[in-house]
Design a protein around this nucleic acid. Structure first.
Lengths: 201, 201
DNA sequence: TTGACAAGTGAACGGATGTTTACTAAAATA
DNA sequence: TATTTTAGTAAACATCCGTTCACTTGTCAA
């Protein structure tokens, strides 16, 4: 069959996102695909290798996205001018795009859930969780706010008040009956925050 | 031995919070306690019964706390006057106490982590997660804000802007080197939000 | 003192786990 | 066309899983 290796990746991720890595058996993944577990080992040397391929795939996707949206990459030291360039409108656009990315797109949504389930299992996983979803985006926003506001503004608090609600809405979205209402709540928050901020710049 | 049943409960919870229910074996729990797994079945009829005792314990503890802090209980229909009674100062006190409860106290902190890991596994668990940590507190705050502000205020957005940052700080706290700094960030947020709100009442 | 009970041991149970192996059939390559 | 590679099967592997059972203690009431 064509594309079996890719199907294994996405099927495994879907299951990892629901049950967690350890609770998903190789047989489950195989039977979900309608093949035997032996066939799985023709594509990946073991179960752990599937998991690591998922992580690697996410890394690549993430770097591509940061460039696409013209946001400064977070893990390199950037000049302050790079953050200053980032206008409020661009922050709004990026944040809403990022929200849809982590909730509505299948791969990244499942990846977020998987990371959520694996975050306490090892320091490697907790680092990834923090980097992608918690302290990472928070510190990123803090840097941006520090660059575009005056010095006496508490950039950390600003970042917390901007990203905190976004972060909470990820969890609310997961179990919401009315997903559209959650997107609208995000819209109202982003809008209200940025008009509030404009008065203080 | 005295208190073995209690030790099984807390030891199992500690492990469930790290690895998730399925990834923790009965032998692990037993050997952590220095007994054989056979002995475990003298206290609980099976592994699932340990898990359910943990859930039940949390329910009891939670109800007791809500009463202690004089906050209206969330799952019964309350008169609007009950919420109006709840002053801003009491909200501040309750929120900070709740934060310490979910982060610094061993049982409730482990319980929060366990729920986080189990939330996608069954609808029962996702309900509990939402109720204790996400949509629950959010809706609770929404009700309070609706009662103490005028009608044209967006109580939902207010609740999101108040509880979102708190919710994010739970995750930040988990992996923060400087836990004190996180508590101070919470303090600054709660303070800044409530002074901001006073101007709009 | 006797006897019931509570709390532990350790071996055994059937079944599921991740992985390897020998084999097959189809497809790609020479 | 002949040969090698690829992608699959099915069975076997040692090991671990949750659970049960026969058995040994120590404690406490009758």
């Amino acid at each position: 069959m064509f594309g079996t290796k890719e199907k294994i990746l996405t099927t495994a991720l879907k299951l990892f996102a629901r049950k967690g890595y350890e609770a998903v058996s190789v047989s489950m993944i195989a039977s979900e695909l309608g093949i035997t577990k032996g066939a799985l080992y023709k594509h990946y040397k073991n179960k752990r290798a599937i998991f690591e391929s998922i992580i690697k795939r996410m890394e690549e996707t993430d770097i591509a996205r940061a460039k696409e949206y013209g946001m400064p990459e977070s893990d390199m030291e950037e000049a302050a001018s790079d953050y200053a360039r980032v206008s409020l409108d661009r922050i709004k656009t990026y944040t809403k795009a990022q929200f849809r990315y982590w909730t509505e797109e299948e791969f990244s949504s499942d990846f977020r859930k998987m990371l959520t389930l694996e975050q306490y299992g090892s320091s490697e996983m907790s680092k990834l969780y923090q980097q992608y979803l918690a302290a990472g985006p928070l510190g990123y926003m803090e840097d941006i706010f520090r660059a575009i506001t005056d010095e006496k503004t508490d950039a950390r608090r600003l970042a917390l008040e901007f990203y905190g609600p976004v972060f909470l809405l990820y969890s609310v979205y997961d179990e919401a009956e009315d997903k559209q209402a959650v997107l609208e709540a995000l819209e109202r928050h982003v809008e209200s925050f940025s008009t509030e901020l404009k008065n203080n710049i």
